[in-house]
């Protein structure tokens, strides 16, 4: 394996992984605090993609339309998440897990059809924004700048979120609610409000990933299912509910995929699942998760 090929596979693996990290981090944070496995999380990511297309095409005369979009679209997705939490999810926390699955699965169908209704079935693309268009040369390999930008975004969000949870009073409140809901409530913390806030934060992350994706890919119906499956693999590997776990899991998944494709392409698709099975057997709570 040449250095050029190694760099190519490593960087592309990590750049794929970083977008997935953003989605998986949202899924994981929501589960950690609310104990809800939101099956519609991938669909919320897809909404981010459609909003990215909608806003960049509406704001096309304004310079830096994509950067405005990157600011607005995830916030809009977070607002949608807030509405979902307040109107729907809040009613079923007391119920069995099964009801959560049915409700969030229904959301996949409803939101997916709503996207089809508003945006139609054709494929939508968004141009790569200045100044991250173009390529850089790394060890003889021409690599798109946008992919490096994605890697940067992933690392930045990881550090910012870790700091938020560890060092701010807001983070302390979230940790308290995560740790013991009743005790937090007894200490005067408004738990329902924390739940709404965390769900919005998780949705924001999915929306952010959804907004970052269209410049390098397409916005298409059905992209939600592909993403949510990969997110499940990531959180199983890293540990559901753990932010560093999601980060580590995403990098492992990305690299495993990239080097699997390079070395044994015929089996590449099976590697992530094989790793998932191994981890479920030897460490069911994930690499960085905590045993229940």
């Amino acid at each position: 394996m040449t250095l050029e090929a190694f760099t190519g596979q490593a960087l592309s693996g990590i750049s794929v992984g970083m977008v997935l990290f953003l989605v998986a981090a949202g899924l994981s944070i929501i589960f950690g605090t609310l104990k809800v496995l939101n099956l519609a999380h991938g669909t919320i990511y897809m909404v981010g993609g459609f909003l990215c297309y909608l806003l960049t095409s509406k704001l096309v005369q304004i310079p830096g339309a994509f950067w405005w979009t990157l600011f607005i679209a995830p916030v809009a997705v977070a607002a949608i998440g807030g509405v979902i939490e307040v109107l729907l999810l809040r009613r079923i926390y007391a119920q069995e897990m099964l009801y959560q699955y049915i409700l969030t699965f229904a959301l996949i169908l409803i939101i997916g059809d709503a996207c089809k209704f508003f945006f139609g079935v054709s494929y939508k693309t968004v141009a790569v924004p200045w100044p991250v268009n173009g390529n850089v040369s790394l060890w003889g390999l021409s690599f798109p700048l946008y992919n490096l930008f994605l890697i940067g975004c992933g690392i930045f969000v990881f550090l910012a979120l870790s700091a938020l949870i560890r060092y701010t009073s807001l983070g302390r409140i979230v940790r308290a609610v995560t740790h013991n809901r009743e005790m937090a409530s007894a200490l005067g913390i408004n738990v329902p409000r924390v739940y709404t806030g965390v769900f919005m934060l998780g949705s924001y992350l999915a929306g952010l990933a959804g907004t970052l994706m269209p410049p390098m890919s397409v916005v298409a119906l059905g992209s939600d299912m592909a993403v949510i499956i990969e997110c499940f693999i990531i959180v199983v590997i890293g540990g559901l509910g753990s932010l560093p776990g999601a980060f580590l899991g995403a990098i492992i998944l990305g690299l495993l995929n990239a080097f699997g494709i390079y070395i044994i392409p015929k089996l590449a698709l099976a590697f992530p699942f094989m790793l998932m099975i191994v981890i479920l057997i030897i460490r069911p709570w994930g690499l960085l998760g905590k045993p229940e």
Partner: peptide, 22 residues
């Protein structure tokens, strides 16, 4: 010389493309 397979519905082919290129 090689057969690469991506899951149906894949929209990020980056790792496949670097493999093809090399």
């Amino acid at each position: 010389i090689d057969e690469l397979w991506a899951p149906l519905g894949t929209t990020d082919f980056t790792a496949y493309i670097t493999k093809i290129a090399n």
